[in-house]
């Protein structure tokens, strides 16, 4: 198991290096000049040249990359060319919002998918099959920004059950003391239950909007896997040992059906944590989405690069987690490469 984890960590680092090189090169070779962005279109050529020298833009690409990596590891993520703010500060103020939304959306999708898939595969019949199929087609097909708007019209405008698009907290509610920067958790840690309720209420609609697609995706996958596995002989044998059909389903079919789903779940987790520009836009969520799209449009190298690296890191971490979890569930994964 330890060897598996070590091997996984090594490949993860390689993936991260690859991602950083890719992000670095692709942004450098796209047309446009960041010095012009900083100095403006009418700055004299001498100042532009001087700035290029200062920023190291005249060095060979490989040297630029090495300097970038060195600084990045030292915590110096550079400055936004457009706002002059340190990139680390910018991202630190935005990422927790995206992270909180993504985490809850994933939890919603994952738990929902497991529960619904278990029920749908256990109680087969025209109604349960049809309902599952309808839900997953809807979830996979509907555009999230539209679905978010509809949810808001129903639950905010008409029913007044949930708050509207005012970000993470209602107006006049102060953020809880920062520990994790996830408001729900920080509020609970500080014992501010009113703040917690407000933060949670603000999360409901964006979480459902963002989580619907991964929920439907995982539901379809897990249900199909469950139906496959439930036809395996060991399910019949488990029942012949005295297990009820439900017990055989939960204890033997679910863990086996879970494995192929886990890989997909890891990818989805990465995707959710890296943020969704459109859903954040609809709910005025102060996440990293807008920051990055603006960065791309303005050729703000440092912002975009840092974001790509962080996203890559999250992806790699999520997949590492999945691999380790798969090793815990499946002894065949755990023993891979080991001799018996």
């Amino acid at each position: 198991m330890l060897r598996l984890i070590l091997a996984r960590v090594v490949t993860s680092i390689i993936a991260l290096v690859g991602a950083s090189i890719f992000a670095f090169v692709i942004l450098r070779v796209t047309p446009g000049d960041p010095t012009r962005l900083i100095l403006g279109a009418f700055a004299p050529q001498e100042s532009v040249d001087r700035l290029r020298e200062e920023l190291g833009l005249n060095l060979p690409l490989a040297d630029q990359y090495l300097i970038y990596v060195r600084d990045f590891l030292a915590g110096d993520w550079g400055f936004s060319y457009s706002t002059g703010e340190p990139v680390a500060t910018q991202l630190a103020s935005r990422f927790p919002a995206t992270l909180e939304l993504g985490l809850y959306a994933f939890l919603f999708a994952f738990v929902g998918a497991v529960v619904l898939a278990l029920l749908a595969a256990y109680r087969r019949g025209p109604i349960s099959d049809g309902a599952t199929r309808a839900l997953s087609f809807f979830g996979l097909g509907v555009p999230p920004f539209w679905f978010g708007l509809v949810l808001m019209i129903v639950f905010f405008e008409h029913l007044h059950w949930l708050p509207g698009p005012d970000g993470r907290l209602g107006p006049g509610v102060a953020p809880p003391p920062a520990v994790t920067r996830l408001y729900t958790i920080d509020a609970l840690l500080a014992g501010q239950f009113a703040t917690f309720a407000d933060a949670a209420a603000h999360l409901v609609l964006p979480v459902i909007t963002l989580g619907l697609f991964p929920l439907s995706f995982l539901l379809r996958l897990l249900r199909a896997n469950l139906l496959d596995v439930s036809r395996e002989p060991f399910i019949t044998v488990a029942r012949s040992r005295g297990l009820s059909r439900w017990a055989a389903f939960v204890r033997h079919a679910l863990p086996n059906a879970f494995l192929p789903t886990l890989t997909a779940a890891g990818l989805l987790l990465g995707q959710l944590l890296a943020g969704s520009v459109l859903v954040e836009k609809v709910f005025n969520w102060p996440g990293v989405g807008a920051l990055v799209t603006d960065g791309i449009l303005r050729q703000d190298f440092s912002v975009v690069q840092a974001f790509i690296l962080i996203s890559a890191f999250i992806y790699v971490l999520a997949n590492l987690l999945v691999d380790i979890l798969a090793g815990f569930i499946d002894p065949r994964v755990r023993h891979a490469g080991m001799r018996r």
Binding site: E232, P233, F234, T236, V237, A238, R239, S240, R241, G242, L243, S244, H252, P255, N256, L259, I329, D330, P331, R332
Partner: peptide, 23 residues
Amino acid sequence: RSIRSREISLIFQDAMGALDPVK
């Protein structure tokens, strides 16, 4: 359920598939 395994039990043909691979 209480009769299965205590009064009557099953040996399956394909032993490889008859046991849960993850337990």
